[in-house]
């Protein structure tokens, strides 16, 4: 279980997070929705320790994330980055098996390659892709490779940062389905951030709406459409009028 309590983060005078409280139950898929620039990515980065929160606490299964041994802590996570964040200098299979080629999870090279090809197959990519470089792949294929890398070491917790950004609707649908299938089959705790409502409906068990630096609403996906919360209603229906100011 991931527990966030009173998370604050400012960048200069810009207060991005103003006391985020959120609980993500183990084995559940939580999707955080919210407009651009509301701090969704910052929140994920705070959990991973990529950004230090100014105040508040983060715990994973009761253990304080800031005091946990870094390598052991990060070994529990997998993350799919918005742009894939694949390493240009490495072929696809070495990107996928990055964690299996070094550090505490190191395996023999042949075994790591075999696992990488298996994970590529799991995300719908042929074994021939393994020896290509990221620059030779389409955007959709890069996302799939990113997804394969995120699940390669079988993490307990997987983060997805805008998993369908920049993809056509069909490819976005494919990625959403893959994420849902993989999360269910691995029994992992998932946390995704997106403003793509089709992703929300495909991936989420629970939804949290981040606005104004705090969680405005959280609940099961089944209750999202019926909630009277004006922020959620404006966001999910894409209305210009409502409590969320639309910059014109």
């Amino acid at each position: 279980m991931i527990t966030l309590s009173g998370i604050h983060k400012s960048f200069g005078p810009n207060q991005v997070l103003r006391g985020v409280d959120l609980v993500v139950p183990t084995g559940q898929s939580m999707v955080i929705i919210g407009g651009s620039g509301t701090g969704k990515s910052v929140l994920l980065k705070c959990i991973l320790g990529l950004v230090q929160p100014d105040a508040g606490s983060i715990s994973i299964d009761g253990e304080d994330a800031t005091t946990a041994a870094r390598d052991v802590f990060l070994a529990r996570f997998g993350m799919l980055f918005q742009g894939g964040a694949l390493f240009d200098s490495l072929p696809v299979w070495q990107n996928v098996a990055f964690r299996l080629l070094r550090g505490s999870l190191k395996r023999p090279r042949a075994e790591a390659r075999e696992i990488a090809i298996e994970k590529l197959r799991r995300v719908g990519l042929k074994p021939e892709t393994a020896d290509l470089y990221p620059a030779e792949l389409s955007g959709g294929m890069q996302k799939r490779v990113g997804l394969a890398r995120a699940i390669a070491a079988e993490p307990e917790i997987i983060f997805f940062d805008e998993p369908t950004t920049g993809l056509d609707p069909i490819m976005a649908g494919v990625i959403n389905e893959l994420i849902r299938e993989i999360v269910t089959e691995m029994g992992a705790t998932a946390m995704a951030i997106t403003h793509d409502m089709s992703s929300v409906r495909a991936i989420a068990d629970r939804v949290a709406m981040l606005h104004g630096g705090v969680i405005q609403w959280t609940g099961p996906i089944s209750e999202m459409d019926a909630t009277p919360d004006p922020y959620v209603q404006q966001f999910i229906h894409g209305r210009a009028e409502g409590p969320i100011e639309a910059v014109r």
Partner: peptide
């Protein structure tokens, strides 16, 4: 370029 394309962040999440 690795920094602006989040590859540095990816390295950290991969325990490197």
């Amino acid at each position: 370029t690795m920094k602006v394309t989040e590859q540095i962040d990816a390295l950290v999440t991969l325990s490197t």
